[in-house]
Every structure is written in structure tokens, then in C-alpha cells.
Write a protein that binds this DNA or RNA. Structure first.
Lengths: 190, 190
DNA sequence: GTCTATATAGGGATAGAC
DNA sequence: GTCTATCCCTATATAGAC
């Protein structure tokens, strides 16, 4: 097989995905022009189209897939394991780290609000749905009643996304940290 | 004075703002091309630049101002009056109506997440900040302790924005209605 | 693989007839 | 006020040298 080992150096394509992601994050799908992308990656158009023959749509798709993989490993899998409590704690930690305590917005959320949602509907929908399902199941295992777990899982996801919007609107990332702390408190059983 | 009376027919400029708003809402600032705008308004570029000599930035600014005015009248003013409870109830009703029970996203939120935030920082910041301040004050008058009112006001704004993101991501507007109902419940004093 | 053209379409914006 | 025609620029994408 020609696939490189997972512990070898990452493929050149995988290596630019993070930078690509930051451009999409900051400018949205429509706003992420190739000139912004070349500036952020240091690669010329020729190199970019060599790595991503499908152009911008392929770049976005692979960035979404990379993000999805990160959350799968760091958040969804932990949520699905154990008694729920440890997974939920890990989720809050990973979420805080991923969004840089509110300094970074959610690319999937950005795509969800814009016209790009339609082109990337599956990835956008799947990301939130698997997060919500894994969280609701973890809440149940942690001792919450079924209905309570369902409601709380929606509140937590919405609270996170909304806090990212507010934090960026106010240019005050502390809004996100405060919101995350209050959400974690609501998980604790009374 | 040359200003038309407020009960007369609206200026032609004001008349296109709603359609303009829907384009910005659906496509974001960058994605709202003049060809989309001409299609949505039925006006040619000549007419558009006659109405908005400042081009797209002016269009966006006036759309933001119109939205701000609507919320000021329908939400912020009621929140500032009376004992708080009636204003908060009116806020939830107006919010549900404005966002079409989750079928419509928040243009200010869309701008906040994108690169347009920087160009329209004042309008974006002011909208959320005046909402939050009016809501926190209403919650205090309704009987909540100071700290509780501050936290709850942030939770409500974030909950609304986040629910709009989730509803659009899942293409399921019921997510928004459910979230709004739960937020209203949290306002009721125990 | 990466670069420098270059192709082609669409972007925002303006001029001037009507 | 509204249109058509047109300007110039930037967009995405491709070709081909190295």
C-alpha cells in the first residue's frame, strides 16, 4: 500500500490544512480568496491546485474533515466512553482549548450561517449532530433524566456557539470563558 | 424642512432595505454580490448607486441601522420600561417573530462572525451591548439579584444566537423555538 | 512540486442617455 | 430615477516551464 504511516511526517496537503482553516475561519467561505490563501500558506496558486485539484470547494471540504476528525478524537470519543462525567469534563477542556478561550470562532458555525451551508450541508449537519448525540448520551449516563439530557445537550451546544458570536461581536473573549463555566455548572447534578 | 412625514410612504431607499437585508442575511457581506442584490431588489446597478452612492458599504450600514431601529423600538425600549416582566415577555415574542421562529438567521450575528465585523464594528458591538444592558436591567427590576441578572442576560443572548446557528446547521427551525422556550423558563423566579 | 504567466468570468463602480 | 454600456480590478482556474 502506498499510504504513508500515520507516525511519519504528515502529507504536504495535511500540513496546510490548519492555515487554510484559519483563512476560512476569519473570512468565511466566500471571503476566503485565493490571494488570501496564498498569503497565509506561502504557496503559489500552482502549488495549491496541485495539492487540491478540486479548488476551493475541495480545500473547504478537507478542512471540515480535519476539524471533524479532531473533534471526533478529542471530544466525541471521550463523550461516548465511561460514566459520562469524565467525558463531559474533557469536552469542556478540549472546547476551551480549541476555541482559544473565545479568541477563535467556530468554522462550522461560520459555514452554517452562510450560503456555504448548502454546499457543505452534510459536514455541517453531521458535526453538530454527532456532538449533540454523544453529549446527550453522556449526560444520561452521568445521571440526568432522558428529557433533561436532551434539553441540556442543546443548551450547551447553543451556548457555546452563541458565546463565540457574542465574544467576537464585543471583541471580548472573556464572554466565552464565563459562558463555558456556567454551562459546566449546569451539568453538575443538584 | 424637507424630510417627509413618518406616516407618508417610505423613501425609496428605505423601501429596498428589507430585501437588501435578506441578501446580506443569506449570503453574508462578502457573498452578497451586486448581481444577487439587483436580482433581489429588481433594481439595476444605476438605480442602486443612485440610492446608495457609497456602494455596498453604505447599503450594509443602512441595513444595520434599520435592524437596530427595529430592535430599539420592539425590544430595547420595552425592556427599559415598567417592572421588567412585561418587557421581557415582549422581548421573547418579538424575537420569535423577528427570526421567524428560527427560519431566519441574525444578520448582526453573521456579520459578527465574519471579516465584516471590523468594518461595521460599532454597529455590531452596539446592537448586542444595548440588548444585553437593557435585558440585564429588566431582569434586575423583575427581581433577580445583580449577578444573576448579569449572567442570565449573557446566557439568553448567547442562547438565542447559538440556537439560530444550530437551527440553520440542522435545517430544523424547531431547535430555535425549543431553546427560546427554555430560556423564557429560566427567567421565571423560583 | 512549485513557480510564472495567462485565460476567462465576475466583482464593484461610473458615465451618460433617456 | 432607471437603464445600458463600459471601466478596471480581482476572482478562480489552467498551462506549461523549471
Amino acid at each position: 500500500m502506498s499510504r504513508r504511516k500515520s507516525n511519519a511526517e504528515p502529507s504536504p496537503r495535511a500540513a496546510v490544512l490548519p492555515q487554510l482553516g484559519e483563512v476560512f475561519r476569519a473570512h468565511g467561505y466566500e471571503g476566503a480568496s485565493l490571494s488570501l490563501i496564498t498569503a497565509a500558506t506561502g504557496l503559489g496558486k500552482g502549488s495549491l491546485y496541485h495539492l487540491f485539484p478540486g479548488g476551493k470547494p475541495q480545500m473547504a471540504k478537507q478542512v471540515l474533515a480535519e476539524i471533524d476528525g479532531w473533534f471526533e478524537r478529542e471530544v466525541f470519543v471521550p463523550l461516548r466512553e465511561g460514566d459520562g462525567k469524565a467525558g463531559i469534563a474533557q469536552m469542556f477542556e478540549a472546547t476551551d482549548a480549541y476555541f482559544r478561550s473565545g479568541r477563535r470562532v467556530c468554522l462550522v458555525g461560520v459555514f452554517a450561517l452562510g450560503a456555504a451551508r448548502d454546499e457543505f450541508a452534510e459536514a455541517v449537519h453531521g458535526y453538530f449532530e454527532r456532538w449533540r448525540a454523544a453529549l446527550a448520551a453522556a449526560l444520561r449516563r452521568a445521571g440526568h433524566a432522558r428529557g433533561e439530557a436532551a434539553e441540556l445537550s442543546e443548551d450547551i451546544l447553543a451556548g457555546i456557539q452563541g458565546a463565540l458570536v457574542l465574544a467576537r461581536a464585543a471583541d471580548d473573549h472573556a464572554i466565552f470563558s464565563r459562558a463555558l463555566k456556567r454551562l459546566a455548572k449546569r451539568v453538575a447534578l443538584k
